[in-house]
Nucleic acid binder design. Sequence first.
DNA 1: CGATGATTCAAACGTTCGTTTGAATCAGTT
DNA 2: AACTGATTCAAACGAACGTTTGAATCATCG
Lengths: 244, 244
Amino acid sequence: MAENKNQAIDTREKILCAAESLFMEHGYAATSLRVITAKARVNLAAVNYHFGSKEALIREVFELRLGPLNAARIAHLDKLEAAARGRPLAIEQIIEAIIAPVLHVSKEPLARGAIFLRLLGRAFSDPADTLREILPAQYRQVVIRFKQALTRSLPELPDQELTWRMHFMFGTLSYIMAGNDALKLIATCNLEDGDDAEAIMRRLIPFLAAGLRAPLSALQTKRGLPGRRSGMKRVHESEIGART
Amino acid sequence: MAENKNQAIDTREKILCAAESLFMEHGYAATSLRVITAKARVNLAAVNYHFGSKEALIREVFELRLGPLNAARIAHLDKLEAAARGRPLAIEQIIEAIIAPVLHVSKEPLARGAIFLRLLGRAFSDPADTLREILPAQYRQVVIRFKQALTRSLPELPDQELTWRMHFMFGTLSYIMAGNDALKLIATCNLEDGDDAEAIMRRLIPFLAAGLRAPLSALQTKRGLPGRRSGMKRVHESEIGART
DNA sequence: CGATGATTCAAACGTTCGTTTGAATCAGTT
DNA sequence: AACTGATTCAAACGAACGTTTGAATCATCG
């Protein structure tokens, strides 16, 4: 029954590809089906025919690519832990299990992968309701799995502190993946040479590893609550909290 | 010449307030003037009358609030450096000069400040062209000024490396300010207690300071270029680069 | 009070949006 | 060649968009 799917699949692919780069460029809400289908060189009605709706299209874009990416992360971590035979992993190894699959994606032909990664990075700050359903579902397992690994490697770190530091880590990663042009402003100096995805990630790993390993400030070792100054020694004198 | 501006200013204020929280909630493109004016309880035409266009409205939202915020950051840093009388500042002090003004804003009445901060955090990943003009202009001086300070406190760090680490730092901060609900998924554990803006920032400072101070990997100490493995010792054995 | 200029308002403008429709086209089977 | 089901297409749908308009309303001052 109908092996003429060749064209249909082509059409689907063309739409997905065009949508990916346009969503990345202008965001979900600001990208119309008309420009998507124009860029893909297919009929306007093709999106609703093949995907059902604009929302289902963006959902498919993410699920098709994010699923394998996160699966690869977990697989990478599994392999590392099997090799370690029970010993805790180095922080750098754990971070690499998160980042290496990203680099793999970034090397897809025609910059398709790089485009998706920027889209993904931005998606974490996109307020579109659709995305706020998709992302947590796709990331839940990854977060649980990596938190286990980090807990074993940082046993002295309180659970809440680790949760926040993971939050910081994923935040940095998502922001860097978004490849924010707006903050190319930081490039007061020239960033000309080998600053491709791989070089950036190699810079990122020591940064994140050091952050995860950071000593607790005196405030955090004993009490969770801020406020009320005492004579306790602190890592640094802070203006923060002065107005409490 | 017309001192009946009382009502006009009220209307402007009401629009700005409504726009701020709606842009934060749904993004720029997905927020219509009709819902803004409905929430502000003013006439639809009031936006074009008082601001000229939707684009001018969002521009005003940012310039009115981001200008003072960044000015406070620079002023804070100036004060610290004056007190230090030529000695380099501690990394933590410099980070605090960035963060303390944010906390100040976060304490504005009726959560107005907190709403703006989330809007600001998201703006860095918003692809709207308007924002891509506004933000770099607003941040340029801050970046230059803080980079100077960090260079003095981290003299051994290559300029490019510092640029990237500042990028990471601003990325983390913007992501955390965006207060991403989507990544509340990370909260596998409960984050119930004192996790207000102040507590979060106090957790963030040691994380960022450690990241900025992180040792260079062996790869970065000598050569800027990635690729080709040599016998050099490295901070950690990496799967990244294995496919180079 | 009547004139003046700033502000509000309801209504409409033209455009663009996501989606639907029904006929035309295509590939594969009988 | 005729039929079938999948796919494409041009056209249109109603809804929502940002913006404009011109009259109504308001506060202020001569």
